[in-house]
Design a protein around this nucleic acid. Structure first.
Lengths: 342, 342
DNA sequence: CTGAAAGCGCTAACAC
DNA sequence: GTGTTAGCGCTTTCAG
């Protein structure tokens, strides 16, 4: 890349016959420098089109004003909302975000984290993939005392703060609602039980059914990932087994969309042939046919809080601790899971 | 931020009683170094948990392996798809993306661009806000010979490549289809005419109507932004003027969703009371009620191509030129804009 | 094959 | 107020 030489402090200094330190201080509005000099310097700097070199500044400052973000995907309503909120909050506080996308792939996840560490981000915000198990890299981050906060998909007991939705309670509420509507035969397209959300959402489901003395048919519970394809494959599998429950509880909203897709192909009507409720929703849910009854997660709040907590840790306003922050969720009633006729 | 001292080349060098140059070369697999030494070095490096400092490397290399991205929003199906594709393509080619979000705000846009320049990104990928007019900053980028590519929302004739959908042809196709379905009274919730997409999409609309000798009612054409709120306000305004067209052509998919929202509040049925067609779509469109007939843009292709072109320019494989690359679009027939009964 | 020296652009500490 | 010096961690050049 043939770069036209960028203007440096030195260039300005020479033209003004002063030292580069003076320029550096003047541009940063340092009290050492006289107003007259400051004016001269800033005038010339803008005239020359000077752009400070953060790379150089960061090298001496040992601080990059930069936060590394690792998410499993972008094109997913929950994440794009969290991400938007993370960006807004960070920018307001003068931090840049360097986002990477693991694509639900643990190898990529590790590679990205390493790359972010190499870029010397001041802290990390991570939502793990659907099958992250190896915690070595996180332990080494702990050892280097680099601030890190997990959100939504977390690993607990590693010494990092975790911010998440009230997954168990949300599922519990949702299933109880379905029971109150008269449903008795449930199926669950669940997430891998090694993940916090896979496990907690299953636990809430189980708790509600147990309390109501409704037995589960193991054939109706499938375990998989969190994407559209998992929902699609899930319904296909149940259909082929010829054992559809009355209602399917999906672990995420994309999984529910996958069920919609499969149902369309199979010519099954939702909610008549198979009903669907899901954890998570989307702003456009109100226009779906039928709109899905599900649990709303406070995505922007989670993003905002994650950034704020992280910056506080970076700036040493709060200690790095192993806290869980559980955000309350709400039940959102749509056109699925309607009252069963007796 | 109290950083536990990070391991440096020097630390490794001392323990091995060699110079840091040797370590640097060994770690980069430089042919100068003997295999035996390389093994010793890499072994110790991983043992100590050494993470190379890209900041330092970048400072001497004058290259950051980093691309700056500026988008107007994230939580919008078209952009989240483009962004996902940009990330995937860049990561494959070993570039990191530093994304910023202008939120359709020109001040923020400029601030972000400056910040990316300060971070010395190797190149820029930009989709401008709905009301960017000032081109000064782009001219200064041109002068510094920093590679830049505009996508979707572009400014032409500034000496940068522009990648976009075939906006005019898409609108033209869509309106012709509506005409063939029997529609005669059109309205347009258009984008600001100063933007390329606002103008081209209007031009395609106008061309189709003119050719069919259908006159426009100026009251039915509104000009605004590209967001849900613009669609919402648009229908509200038309409704209050008591002058609804048969069918509304919206400049983006979010604008169409805004129309849906307003229609719901006003108790207007789509497509019976007011019909809707839009430029742009979304993967979940097929589940909307009714699904929208509209134009599909090749979002991932645009993202991929933008990154590839940019990297080629960065690596001087192709010259920086002022080309327009127009991507073909396709008509996507949904449940709106159905055959009119005679 | 290995190393000493210089420099990337900036900032902090201290001297003038 | 302003300047000198040193150094952030790495790479490149060139000498041994």
């Amino acid at each position: 890349m043939k770069i036209v030489k960028q203007i440096t402090l030195n260039d300005i200094a020479k033209k003004l016959n002063v030292s580069k330190v003076t320029i550096s201080k003047a541009l940063r509005d340092h009290p050492d420098i006289s107003d007259a000099m400051k004016k001269k310097v800033t005038a010339l700097a803008t005239k020359l089109g000077y752009t400070p070199n953060f790379i150089a500044r960061n090298l001496s400052a040992k601080k990059t004003q930069t936060i590394g973000l690792v998410v499993p995907k972008i094109n997913h309503h929950f994440f794009s909302e969290v991400i938007e909120s993370i960006y807004n909050t960070a920018h307001k506080k003068n931090y840049e975000i360097i986002m990477t996308v693991s694509q639900e792939n643990t190898k990529q996840e590790i590679k990205h984290i390493q790359s972010l560490l190499a870029m010397r981000v001041d802290g990390l915000l991570i939502s793990i993939t659907e099958n992250t198990k190896d915690t070595d890299i996180f332990k080494s981050i702990k050892q280097k005392e680099i601030p890190l906060i997990f959100f939504d998909r977390v690993i607990e007991n590693l010494g990092f703060n975790c911010i998440m939705s009230d997954d168990e309670d949300g599922s519990y509420q949702l299933i109880n609602y379905a029971i109150s509507q008269g449903y008795r035969i449930f199926g669950h397209l669940g997430g891998y039980r090694e993940t916090n959300i896979g496990l907690s959402r299953f636990n809430g489901y189980k708790k509600a059914l147990d309390e109501a003395n409704i037995s589960q048919n193991p054939e109706h519970n499938l375990i998989g990932g969190f994407s559209v394809s998992d929902g699609y494959n899930g319904l296909m599998e149940l259909y082929n087994k010829k054992t559809l429950p009355e209602i399917l509880f999906t672990v995420t909203y994309p999984v529910a969309l996958g069920v919609y897709k499969a149902a369309k192909e199979l010519n099954l009507s939702i909610p008549n042939d198979i009903d669907v409720i899901s954890f998570g929703d989307a702003s456009y849910n109100q226009f779906l046919n039928p709109s899905i009854t599900g649990i709303h997660q406070p995505a922007s709040e989670i993003g905002k809080l994650a950034v704020e907590q992280l910056i506080n840790q970076i700036e040493e306003k709060i200690p790095v601790e192993d806290n869980r922050i559980i955000m309350p969720v709400t039940l959102n009633i749509g056109q699925t899971c309607i009252k069963k006729e007796k």
